[in-house]
């Protein structure tokens, strides 16, 4: 049946108010739980760069015990305060916001993985990274041993790489391939690590800076290489400063 325009307008207004109310209530009500699960997710991915976590693990507990987070600048100096002068918390540093800034002005979080028995001894440095894959952003954490040369582990994530191809960077199979690789050559120059084209699945065929590729995902691999190389470059001052301690 044909309704008057007034009826339609009133109907629309009421509907908008109801829907708006439901949505803002949901968002308010679920906000704290969402914040918690995002925190858990971040800490899980930081930790998974250095250890295998199972679903049962108390991630927040392990994180609290083992991770000491600091923030450094481009020159490798620790910074305590953010640009507005507030105390800086590494976990709250927005890597995407920083990504849009000049590398020299960014804040760089470093997650120091401490020894389980002696929590003053650093066992590994976990560095967050961000870059472009084939379709959209890729991100992750690369953990360096305390020699700041050998890769202890890595964990990567992606927004929308091709399932089964580029999306494999998020799998343990691919991340395992980074273990034990080194980022400096014999002369002490930062060379990073490079994922090659093609997939051989035989670890013995690759040099200390080379990583077996992902079949069908060469471009994601290139993005990954660029991301790691860039960020190791940004952290180079910090790495060199702490290398010979």
């Amino acid at each position: 049946m044909q309704r008057s325009n007034t009826y339609i307008l009133v109907f629309t207004a009421i509907m908008t108010v109801i829907i708006g109310g439901i949505l803002s209530f949901t968002s308010q009500f679920l906000g704290p739980a969402q914040k918690k699960s995002i925190e858990l997710d971040t800490k899980t991915s930081i930790l998974s760069a250095v250890m295998q976590l199972s679903k049962k693990d108390d991630v927040l507990g392990i994180y609290k015990q083992r991770i000491r987070s600091v923030v450094v600048d481009y020159n490798g100096n620790y910074i305590e305060k953010d640009r507005k002068g507030n105390p800086i918390v590494a976990e709250n540093v927005n890597i995407l916001k920083n990504y849009k800034m000049d590398p020299k002005e960014r804040e760089y979080p470093v997650y120091e993985y401490m020894n389980a028995d002696d929590t003053t001894q650093i066992e590994a440095y976990i560095l967050p990274m961000y870059g472009a894959g084939l379709w959209d952003a890729i991100y992750g954490y690369v953990a360096l041993e305390k020699d700041l040369n050998t890769i202890k582990g890595a964990s990567f994530g992606h927004v929308s790489e091709t399932p089964g191809l580029g999306a494999r960077i998020a799998t343990q199979e691919i991340q395992e391939r980074f273990k034990g690789k080194t980022i400096f050559d014999e002369n002490g120059n930062l060379v990073s690590v490079t994922m090659l084209k093609g997939e051989k699945k035989d670890p013995s065929l690759f040099g200390p800076h080379e990583i077996d590729g992902m079949s069908g995902a060469t471009l994601t691999g290139k993005g990954l290489n660029a991301m790691i190389k860039n960020y190791l470059g940004y952290y180079e001052a910090f790495i060199k400063k702490n290398k010979h301690q």
Binding site: L23, T26, L30, A33, Q34, S37, I38, D41
Partner: peptide
């Protein structure tokens, strides 16, 4: 609503 619930309880 579904998406928000998922975000909160199964991130």
């Amino acid at each position: 609503v579904v998406s928000e619930v998922l975000k909160a309880y199964n991130y």
